[in-house]
Computed example of a mutant assay.
Amino acid sequence: MTAEGLAVEDLTVRFGRGARATTALDGVSVTVPAGHTVGLVGESGSGKSTLAKAILGIVPAESGRVLLDGTDVSGLGRHERRAFLRRVQLIPQDPYSSLNPRRTIAQTLAEALDPAWARVRGHTDAITSALEEVALPADAAQRYPHEFSGGQRQRIAIARALITRPEVVIADEITSALDVSVQAEVLRLLARLRRELDLTMLFISHNLAVVEQVSDEVVVLRHGHVVEAGTAGDVFTAPASGYTRALLAAVPGRREEGAPLT
Rank of each mutant, 00 (worst) to 15 (best):
Thr108Gln: 14
Thr108Lys: 02
Thr108Ile: 15
Leu109Arg: 08
Leu109Trp: 06
Ala110Asp: 06
Ala110Met: 10
Ala110Asn: 09
Ala110Arg: 09
Ala112His: 05
Ala112Met: 13
Leu113Ala: 05
Leu113Glu: 05
Leu113Arg: 08
Pro115Tyr: 11
Ala116Phe: 13
Ala116Ile: 10
Ala116Glu: 15
Trp117Asp: 12
Trp117Cys: 13
Trp117Ala: 14
Trp117Gly: 05
Ala118Arg: 13
Ala118Gln: 12
Arg119Ser: 11
Arg119Glu: 14
Val120Phe: 03
Val120Arg: 02
Val120Ser: 03
Arg121Ala: 15
Arg121Cys: 06
Arg121Tyr: 08
Arg121Trp: 06
Arg121His: 15
Gly122Cys: 09
Gly122Thr: 10
His123Ala: 13
His123Tyr: 09
His123Ile: 09
Thr124Ile: 04
Thr124Asn: 03
Thr124Phe: 00
Asp125Pro: 00
Asp125Cys: 00
Asp125Glu: 14
Asp125Gly: 03
Ala126Cys: 02
Ala126Glu: 12
Ile127Phe: 01
Ser129Gly: 07
Leu131Met: 07
Glu132Ala: 14
Glu132Ser: 13
Glu133Asp: 15
Glu133Tyr: 01
Glu133His: 07
Glu133Arg: 15
Ala135Val: 12
Ala135Phe: 11
Ala135Ser: 15
Leu136Tyr: 04
Leu136Arg: 05
Leu136Phe: 02
Pro137Gln: 10
Pro137Met: 09
Ala138Val: 14
Ala138Phe: 02
Ala138Tyr: 04
Ala138Asp: 13
Asp139Lys: 02
Asp139Gln: 10
Asp139Thr: 05
Asp139Gly: 05
Ala140His: 01
Ala140Asn: 00
Ala141Thr: 01
Gln142Pro: 03
Arg143His: 14
Arg143Trp: 06
Tyr144Ile: 11
Tyr144Leu: 15
Pro145Asn: 08
His146Ser: 13
His146Trp: 12
His146Asn: 12
Glu147Asp: 12
Glu147Arg: 10
Ser149Val: 07
Ser149Trp: 05
Gly150Thr: 08
Gly151Asp: 09
Gly151Thr: 11
Gln152Val: 00
Gln152Ala: 06
Arg153Val: 00
Gln154Cys: 08
Gln154Ile: 13
Arg155Cys: 13
Arg155Gly: 09
Arg155Asp: 08
Ile156Glu: 00
Ala157Thr: 12
Ala157Ile: 14
Ala157Leu: 10
